[in-house]
Design a protein around this nucleic acid. Structure first.
Length: 243
DNA sequence: CCGGTTGTTCAGCG
DNA sequence: GCGCTGAACAACCG
């Protein structure tokens, strides 16, 4: 569920609810979710892993964290965190974080840092990377201020694809390699989107959760890398370490 | 059946 | 105030 492309899929699936009025609200969120009742959905947006439901004067931010899920016109056995009933159809969110954002969402979110956005700016990502040369590239890819939407799977796959060791220093990467990190963070995310839509995402993993490097046929290293200490799979033979 | 995780925030500590 | 660590959250897969 959680990585950026999965949120883009959700956004596409809920398009029929745009402009529709919410007639009833339920769920066990501790936020004041009843204020949503009677409101009409102006738009659905996404920023990285954030799913945004926009109303006239406020926006509901859903973050699925690690375990969150949703159902459209269906229900799960468990109590939803937030349930939106429309005249026709319903939207249910489970085990997620629900937050309210007041005012204009365009002033709060920088769309240029979302790798899935039409407004994505690789130049801004480059500027941010240049400001933190001692950051490990595995940590940089997970930094939502730089690559909003990139998660642990995308991180592992991008680094394998461009043959970069996860513990390489951002500032030591050759310029063209650094540019590949930035370019593939976006390109792989769109590959992820298409594969996920076609239910072939896992089949296309080359590194994430794999035991053997498909290029070298030697065992991958599995290590909890960087200050983010997330599971990282890499090949010490074909992924070059820059330090 | 248990262990681990596509994520983030926050308290506590030195 | 800083960075680091661990807990908390809570669902599903293998």
């Amino acid at each position: 569920m959680p990585e950026g492309p999965s949120i883009v899929i959700l956004k596409e699936l809920v398009q029929p609810f745009i402009g529709k009025k919410i007639v009833e609200v339920g769920g066990n969120s501790k936020m004041d979710i009843q204020r949503i009742a009677g409101q009409s959905v102006n738009d659905f947006k996404s920023w990285g892993k954030h799913f945004l439901i926009c109303f006239d004067h406020f926006t509901v931010r859903i973050h699925f964290m690690l375990f969150g899920s949703y159902r459209i016109n269906e229900q799960k056995e468990t109590m939803p965190r937030l349930s939106l009933q429309f005249q026709e159809g319903e939207l249910n969110f489970y085990a997620c974080s629900v937050q309210f954002i007041e005012g204009d969402v365009n002033e709060i979110y920088d769309w240029s840092s979302d790798v899935m956005s039409d407004n994505w700016s690789s130049d801004k990502a480059k500027d941010k990377l240049e400001k933190q040369p001692t950051t490990l590239v595995c940590d940089a890819l997970l930094d939502q201020d730089i690559f909003a939407g990139v998660g642990n799977i995308i991180k592992n796959e991008v680094l394998f694809r461009i043959r970069v060791h996860p513990e390489s220093l951002v500032g030591t990467l050759p310029a063209n390699t650094r540019d590949e990190v930035i370019a593939q963070a976006r390109i792989y995310s769109f590959d992820f989107l298409e594969w996920k839509k076609n239910y072939v995402l896992k089949k296309n993993w080359l590194a994430h959760s794999k035991k053997i490097c498909p290029r070298c046929n030697i065992p991958f290293i599995k290590k909890y890398c960087g200050k983010t200490k997330r599971r990282t799979f890499f090949c010490t033979n074909c992924q070059l370490l820059y330090q």
